[in-house]
Simulated assay, not measured.
Amino acid sequence: MKSNCLKTTTCQERKKDPIEMLQSGQLVKVCAPMVRYSKLAFRTLVRKYNCDLCYTPMIVAADFVRSVKARDSEFTTNQGDCPLIVQFAANDARLLADAAHIVCPYANGIDINCGCPQRWAMSEGYGACLINQPELIQDMVKQVRNQVENPRFSVSIKIRIQDDLTRTVDLCRKAEATGVSWITVHGRTVAERHQPVHYDAIKIIKENISVPVIANGDIKTLKEAENVCEITGTNGVMVARGLLANPALFAGYEETPLKCIWDWIDIALELGTPYMCFHQHLMYMMEKITSRQEKRIFNALCSTSAVLDYLTDHYGT
């Protein structure tokens, strides 16, 4: 497992505690787990722009436990990468507990993905299919609690809602009774993709449990984040695509500022981000600030040097 200058100080010894943050009464701003995207370099960037809590991309717990190669490629952190939640895809309580034990010195907690609607995940028994298996979720939470001795190490779940909301509320109550630290609710069902988010459902869930709740779904500005928090009564908001398009969203910017673009370049180059990821993030960030013709040119660039030359020529340093 790579640690990129990780020193002896571990996350548990640092002052930022996500559970305390979520109980503070202040809006907690969260970067979602995003496959390929919410890695160390991007987490470093959004933290510079008022993001309070970051998640890793979803990691398959079984592979992580069994393969050193998987650990090295899937989980990279450093001392400044805190507070940090490692999200796992799992359907085996023992393997999840083992994975949590491995990451506990380097993270503030783990999250169980119970919301991913992708076919491959559900076919493997991961993701959103778990919302129909509350007993398995309870077992996984219990096993992690038993395996990790640190009481400040959080165990959370991220879910989607069900067509029958009473079942979702029941699931959340069972998770709460088992010791889950908080619950993130994406306000759509498994079948829904781009339909409006059911913030009313998130509100009902929040009203029926005592642990903190994070609202997730279609938040694109800081104002929207604040509105969603007010509407739902939740303790925080989680953003995915909105942050990809504008990593400075939580700092109140309506679109990606040029400083953020150059910050990304500095961070990505320092941490050795692969070119495809480096370039793709820039394509997302520049979507709103470039013309169609500029997009065609920029998106076709094939090297870091070409990207740097283009940005220097068009936007200065």
Rank of each mutant, 00 (worst) to 15 (best):
D92R: 07
M58Y: 08
K39V: 07
F88E: 02
I59Q: 12
V68K: 11
V60C: 11
R71F: 03
R43F: 08
R43C: 12
A97H: 02
G80Y: 13
I112P: 03
A89N: 10
G25T: 06
V30E: 11
V28Y: 02
C82V: 11
T76N: 06
D98I: 05
Q26H: 09
F75D: 02
V68Q: 09
S73K: 07
L84H: 12
R43M: 12
S67L: 04
A41S: 06
T76K: 08
Q26R: 09
A97I: 00
D63N: 15
M34T: 03
S24D: 06
V30H: 03
F42M: 10
G25P: 05
N91S: 13
S24W: 01
Y37P: 00
A100G: 15
T56Y: 09
G80I: 06
A100E: 07
C51A: 15
V60L: 13
A62K: 15
H101T: 08
N108A: 04
F88C: 09
C51T: 15
A32N: 05
Y55W: 15
F42G: 03
N108V: 04
Q87E: 10
N50P: 01
Y55F: 15
T56L: 13
K69I: 01
T76Q: 10
A41D: 10
D92H: 10
D98S: 14
M58S: 05
D63R: 15
V103I: 13
A70F: 01
P105T: 12
T44H: 14
L53T: 06
I59N: 11
Q87T: 08
N113Q: 04
C31S: 14
S38T: 11
D111G: 07
Y106T: 03
I112W: 00
R47W: 04
S67C: 10
C104I: 03
Q87A: 08
